[in-house]
Each structure stands twice: as C-alpha cells, then as structure tokens.
Amino acid sequence: MASIPEELKYSKEHEWVSGDVTSGSVVTVGITEHAAEALGDVVFVEAPAVGASVTAGEVCGELESTKAVSELYSPVSGTVTEVNDSLENAPESINAEPYGSGWIFKVELSDDAGDLLDAAGYADVSE
C-alpha cells in the first residue's frame, strides 16, 4: 500500500501540498506515492518556472517515465517561488522519496486553498 502521510493535503489529481494553505503563505507541492508507483520510474520532470502563475486544477508541467507520460496539475493557485532543481539530475527522487527529496515546486498562494482533501479523503480517491 502506498503511504499517505496524515499531515499533508491532497488533490484528486494525486498531488500533495504541505504547509499552511491560507492566502499569502508558501506551500510545497509534489506527487503522491500512489501516483509515482503508477507512473513507474520518473526520468524527466518539466516543472513550472519560478515566477509563473499556476491555477488550481490546471496543468502546469509534465512527468515522464519510460512507460508513460503524465500531466502535472497544480493543486493550488498562486506564484511559483522555487523549483526543485535537483530533479534535473535525479528525477528518481520522485519514486524514492515522493514526500521528501522528490518535492517538485513551491507556490505562494493567491487564495486560500480550501478544496484540498485530507489523507482519509485522498485514500478514498486513490483506492
């Protein structure tokens, strides 16, 4: 069973969000272990650029494995403040530590992110 940490929040598109989700704060975004397992070994990540505006529920990048390509959705709306550059040379971090060194980008929220799921809610959609 893929792990779903209690302290994180989730989108239906299999991204996780950590941190305070009220307007103005900065959150970290990645993909869940369930999503990483479904994709297989990630070999290339195209994340949004620093300074880009992202919108909750909209595509902001893509992830490629040998087997498949998957769109990366932003789970929140705001401005990208930082991107995990280590994924350029070590995309495998997404499979090894999806909730740790495999984080993808950080966003300063332009709105409260009220629609995210808690761990139990995400467990239901990722069944």
């Binding site: 397992e37 297989g40 070994d41 040998t66 495998e92």
Partner: peptide
C-alpha cells in the same frame, strides 16, 4: 505491479523499471 496484457494478468514491473 500486475497489469492486464492481452487478457493476461502479468507483471509490469517488480521494483523500478529502469533498474
């Protein structure tokens, strides 16, 4: 990880497919 392949339930990968 098992996957349907032409009606058969077969292994897609055991650990990492790149490894």
């Amino acid at each position: 990880s098992l996957v349907d392949f032409a009606g058969w339930e077969m292994p897609l990968r055991y650990g990492g497919d790149v490894a």
